[in-house]
Design a protein around this nucleic acid. Structure first.
Lengths: 130, 130, 130, 130
DNA sequence: GTGGTCTAGACCACT
DNA sequence: GTGGTCTAGACCACG
């Protein structure tokens, strides 16, 4: 999977990488059990410092997305088993309150917004996310 | 409208205020043409630095949500007319890609996600967003 | 609270700091709601780099021990509410299997070992850990 | 005795092996004078590099747990005679300070903790640790 | 002044 | 070669 980083963005680089890896898992571009590049490899591919990649991998590990093998490096957790915890649902709810409010005020109809959701979900369903 | 700020949150205070004002406009809790509290008033109400409030109001003005009168203070723009610019749509698209990906992996079905959208939109429809 | 760091130890510095803060909370040397020194302050007190302290504070935050205020810095979580999760109990069990095995082979009797536990717990009970 | 290695664990593999051998000695699963598998045998059984096993055996030898015969391989020291040296006691004390502090804060009572100790020790007593 | 991000380079433990 | 630790310095966002 090729990562596209926007260096000018206000979103931190490590966050962009995290997002794209999670998207990759959802779409199936990254399969469970698949190896990720080594910290130094990925860093040099993207052209960033390897500490930034370490940070990404550590956060993904702590949230359960990946497993860090002492030897063989990092791989997508083969037993991926994330759940809709109350904390997550609260965050999501808050985010969607803010997001839909602005979308509504900018003239996006409910149908248009739902359409965006469906378009995204269709990328996942076909692949199967577990 | 009463603002609820979480000081421990990772979301910057100025962002929280902005979000809540926009939500307030969408739900109708804040009417177009309505006056907002003065910078110092709001700052002391919430218990924050008034520079933070200035920042919020300036950003809201720049994005077209409010109008700042030199004397009479800040009011919700009576001719609110925000549109779905290409830049906005791109940001929204990117955000929803990331958000739906994680939601999907955490087991939220498309229907559950759409349900969240509808619940929010129903709060807006009745008021009319102009 | 004064932190004692052993620079020659094989235990990473950030781990030593973490341990001592947690001990401090248990003994009451650090009260819930109490402010911790700023990252740069603590770093210069101990004579280490501030990035190391950031790492400590972030881990403590993620585990729920402290809260990081955007402005006022870091404080012991006033609503400290950690529980004996299954994951924790498994880790503890494994650790104690290893620890007691070696202790037993080195001639520590059950009573001596229990005595160590009691001595430590007595430092906590009197203070009350909430 | 069958060794169970967790490759995803944060605990180094060599440490896991060491721990399990020491536990085995304490429980009697490994008898004093008993032969341990050869370096290459154990390495291929577990599926790890044989250097890792060499490291384990060397450390165990240095600490007095095993004896390495040039030809006949490695065996549990028949005259096992480890003592509670001051250095060991200091390490143990420090470890238990940290461990009990977190356990206490997570709601484990003194009795629950002592119970864990007793359960473990009961596995040793019956066998006798010489 | 607070925490956080990114870069860069050295060194270490593990396999 | 793998991840991880520590140092050091620059810069940024926030309040």
């Amino acid at each position: 999977m090729l990562l596209q980083i926007q260096f000018e963005s206000e979103i931190p680089i490590y966050q962009q990488i995290k997002n794209q890896i999670i998207r990759g898992i959802a779409t199936g571009a990254l399969q469970q059990g698949e190896d990720l590049p080594s910290v130094r490899q990925l860093a040099s591919d993207i052209g960033i410092n390897f500490h930034t990649v370490i940070k990404v991998y550590n956060q993904l590990k702590q949230e359960g997305w990946v497993i860090i093998h002492r030897k063989s490096g990092v791989m997508i957790n083969p037993d991926l088993n994330l759940t809709k915890t109350p904390e997550y649902m609260e965050l999501l709810d808050d985010l969607m309150k803010t997001t839909t409010a602005e979308a509504f005020m900018r003239g996006l109809t409910k149908e248009e917004f739902i359409n965006i959701i469906e378009k995204n979900y269709d990328n996942y369903k076909t692949q199967g996310g577990k």
